[in-house]
């Protein structure tokens, strides 16, 4: 069984039509898992269910084999999940250092070790540690967002469209950072619009259509699959 898995998930907002119909998502430590699919396929919804921001009406979420379906967001964060939202993912009027401290809000132990790790991973943040995050560039801000999420010492990072709305040259930088996260032994699960580039670095890919698993496989397999290419990668 995978490290984090959401199995046969069904979920809906309010009482309307379900967004997720029996969909399964899995992520393994030291791997990058990517959810791709057209708009409205339920990509972000799947992420919300895994995090506990939305209660599924059926299916279960497990972490290391333990059922965490009934836990609140805060409890899941304590267990090692971390989330970087697509937008508004930093505290703009606080410094880089303060953003990281807020990421570690729940921790009562010494955080200096983790701070050092984050600064190691993102050296630019170290240089800008006393600057307000609101004054940083888009890429640097994204790094601060990653850094904040890492402060809980998560074992798995959930990223919601990390490259949406950033300049193309920054996209590469962000993908490098994601690989760094993976290489540090964490599990990474992300939703991505930029399907081709995401699948290139993905160890596992989930193609969702109308809340169902349309295709599942390694990134390479999906890139090679003619149907996936035709429908989602523009040939």
């Amino acid at each position: 069984m995978a490290y984090l898995s959401g199995t046969n998930l069904v979920a809906a907002y309010d009482q309307s039509v379900p967004i997720l119909n029996n969909c399964t998502i899995e992520a393994e430590k030291g791997e990058v898992a990517v959810i791709v699919g057209p708009n409205g396929a339920g990509k972000s919804t799947a992420m919300k269910v895994l995090l506990g921001m939305l209660k599924p009406s059926a299916g279960s979420v497990t972490l290391e084999g333990k059922d965490i379906s009934r836990l609140s967001v805060q409890k899941r964060i304590r267990l090692g999940l971390a989330f970087v939202p697509q937008t508004d993912n930093v505290f703009p009027t606080m410094t880089v250092q303060e953003n990281l401290e807020m990421g570690a809000f729940l921790r009562t132990d010494d955080i200096s070790q983790t701070l050092a790790e984050v600064y190691d991973l993102f050296p630019i943040l170290n240089d800008r540690r006393n600057q307000l995050v609101g004054q940083l560039s888009g890429g640097q801000r994204q790094q601060a967002a990653f850094g904040r999420a890492m402060m809980t010492q998560p074992t798995i990072m959930l990223l919601d469209e990390p490259t949406a709305g950033v300049a193309p040259n920054v996209v590469d930088e962000i993908f490098d950072n994601i690989l760094n996260l993976k290489n540090s032994g964490r599990a990474v699960l992300m939703v991505e619009q930029n399907a081709r580039q995401a699948l290139e670095i993905a160890d596992k890919g989930f193609v969702l259509v109308s809340g169902r698993n349309e295709h599942t496989g390694t990134g390479k397999e999906l890139l090679a699959n003619p149907e996936v290419r035709r429908s989602f990668l523009g040939g």
Binding site: V73, I77, D88, F91, T93, M94, E98, M102, F105
Partner: peptide
Amino acid sequence: KAMRAYADNEDLALLSGI
């Protein structure tokens, strides 16, 4: 600081466990 964080970005503050 948690107060400032909450003022800045309520949702993210919740995600940080505040």
